[in-house]
Design a protein around this nucleic acid. Structure first.
Lengths: 154, 154
DNA sequence: TTTAATTGTTAAATAGTTTAACTATCTCCA
DNA sequence: TGGAGATAGTTAAACTATTTAACAATTAAA
């Protein structure tokens, strides 16, 4: 592959990933309404999936400092979506779970977002979308390896 | 395609797009260093590409309010990367361009980022990456149409 | 048992965002 | 032609998300 071709692919990749991310966020924000933000939604999503987790775990998953998580959790806690439970054995640890209200809220939101993405995805041939996601997941795997191995130069 | 399959594809899509975006941003932030932020970099990138533009144009391109653009432009202006030039014919309009310093800075950053993305992309078969980007661009096109047509229900 | 490390929080600072009000300028039509 | 309304950009206030640095409480390790 020639240098020009690679450069063109790189340019197209940067443009399209930026553009798609922006537009999807805009659509999602519309679905979320004014109740919660994107970041808060992703945190709810994470906790919903795993059932229970700690601030440290969230900080690692989202690649931010723990104090950033504290701030988001505080806002979700004020809305009544999050419950904090101290570990009785190791009293430093605080387990985060969704309240009943938080769970209901998340499910309601998630249905809308699933619907949105589904309609978007369903415009493609299943095989094309399958291949797209496979490559996307491969890319993700490579990024995980880069991070784990601390290979700054790849 | 069955309902379960679609749901599974939707889940995988949401997960992988979130994950890749996060990790790419983390890598890019490392390349950018402490001089500018992601958002500032994207603004520089836009102006570098088009040569000259207005706040209104940037606000539309980035789907934010004009006052958000003013804030970012102010920070880039303080760093000496942006020049503001009033239109002599329509004195409401302010043209934004990169200063020489801004251009040099952007090129330096961009080289690093291109290098990063290139190394990532080059691990794939060219045909696989080509197909991936084609589908990605199709997705982008669909998102543009949704936005233009204001089809909230798709 | 003193020293280390870990977990989570708080406080201060910065960036990005929206809404609302404002200035300056331009357009247009009565 | 002159006044009303539209447009371009800024400012101010409020909010969210983020980092750094310091801290308290607790646990692990020497």
């Amino acid at each position: 592959m020639s240098k020009e071709n690679i450069q063109s692919i790189v340019d197209r990749y940067i443009d399209v990933s930026f553009s798609v991310t922006k537009k999807e966020e805009a659509l999602m924000t519309k679905e979320l309404g004014s109740e919660i933000t994107q970041d808060q939604h992703y945190i709810l999503r994470y906790i919903y999936r795993v059932g229970s987790c700690t601030s440290t775990e969230l900080a690692e998953a989202f690649e931010v400092k723990k104090s950033a998580i504290t701030a988001i959790i505080n806002r979700l806690w004020e809305k009544g979506f999050i419950k904090r439970t101290r570990d009785e054995k190791d009293r430093r640890v605080v387990y985060l779970t969704l309240t009943e209200q938080g769970e209901e809220f998340f499910q309601r939101i998630e249905e809308k977002i699933n619907c949105l993405i589904e309609k978007l995805i369903s415009k493609f041939e299943p095989s094309e979308m399958e291949q797209f996601i496979k490559t996307y997941e491969k890319l993700n795997q490579m990024l995980i390896e880069i991070k784990d191995n601390q290979i700054d130069h790849l």
